[in-house]
């Protein structure tokens, strides 16, 4: 009974992806790592690689900080209200990322709200460029993936044993100590799960860097698209694909280790 599903996925999915990845190790028909050496010798590629890593980590980190604050507040609401707010948190996940990202053009564009405010308040004579900056990509990614973090933190906070927080308070813990010594260790799994989802999501997002970063702020995904569509460079495409997959799996493995330690 599982066979159709497994065969379907393997044939349509694992096999072609496997071949694609192998392309990065072949230059001129020979198995070699030369492609990788060549790839990383180019400053642009290096910049894009580190930018992707940096943005992924940053989005995960900020999601975690904001996520903890809001998850904690949401969990402490009355059940009825909590359900409603929870619904609002997951709502964005159901809406087209194109629509979600497009909103940022309206907000950050030359004639967008932020620039209208800046010019209107006389903070600057000319509109400031926000689009096609790392900030714009960061904001877009954060908005796109933060719900995943909040959801997984909420579910692990709901599983906190009863009364451990007041117990810590009565034993003399400040709110910061309650967080670091009780909440954090007890919600580590939720944090790791959320962190993995957000980090890999940010690494592999295409729409956000494409719309908000353009060719000025390339990330690995948009770089891959360029390599294929502009320069037909399938060696680089295979390499980028491999890097992305390794980073995603790496994040999975490393974070799972941390969760269990």
């Amino acid at each position: 009974m599982v066979l159709p599903a497994a065969v379907f996925t393997a044939a349509l999915f694992l096999l072609p992806v496997g071949i694609l990845l192998s392309e990065g190790f072949k230059v001129g028909g020979e198995w070699t790592l030369a492609g990788y050496a060549d790839f990383f010798s180019k400053p642009l590629n290096r910049t894009v690689f580190f930018r992707t890593l940096k943005l992924g980590l940053l989005v995960a980190l900020v999601s975690a900080i904001v996520g903890y604050a809001s998850a904690f507040c949401i969990v402490n609401l009355e059940p009825k209200q909590r359900g409603r707010i929870f619904g609002l948190v997951i709502l964005p996940l159901m809406i087209s990322p194109v629509a979600r990202t497009y909103a940022w053009i309206v907000i950050l564009g030359r004639t967008g709200i932020v620039n209208d405010a800046i010019v209107g308040l006389g903070l600057s004579d000319t509109p400031i460029r926000f689009l096609f900056t790392e900030t714009a990509v960061f904001l877009g990614l954060l908005q796109l993936f933060m719900p995943l973090m909040i959801i997984s933190l909420i579910s692990s906070m709901e599983n906190l044993p009863k009364d451990v927080i007041p117990a810590a308070r009565v034993l003399g813990a400040s709110w910061l100590q309650v967080f670091t010594r009780v909440i954090l260790p007890l919600t580590r799994e939720g944090l790791v799960l959320g962190g993995t989802l957000v980090f890999t999501g940010a690494l592999t997002a295409y729409i956000t860097p494409a719309i908000l970063g353009g060719s000025k702020v390339l990330m690995l995904e948009t770089l891959l698209y360029q390599k294929v569509n502009v320069s037909n460079d399938f060696v680089s495409a295979g390499i980028i694909a491999t890097i992305l997959i390794v980073m995603c799996f790496g994040a999975n493995v490393v974070l799972r280790r941390i969760a269990k330690a």
Partner: peptide, 25 residues
């Protein structure tokens, strides 16, 4: 293993899947 195979399309970035399908299928 089967679960992992079936779950793979979520883990592997979509753009790679699309490209692989285009090029090899």
């Amino acid at each position: 293993t089967i679960k992992l195979i079936v779950a793979a399309p979520i883990i592997v970035p979509g753009i790679i899947v699309g490209l692989a399908l285009l090029r090899y299928l």
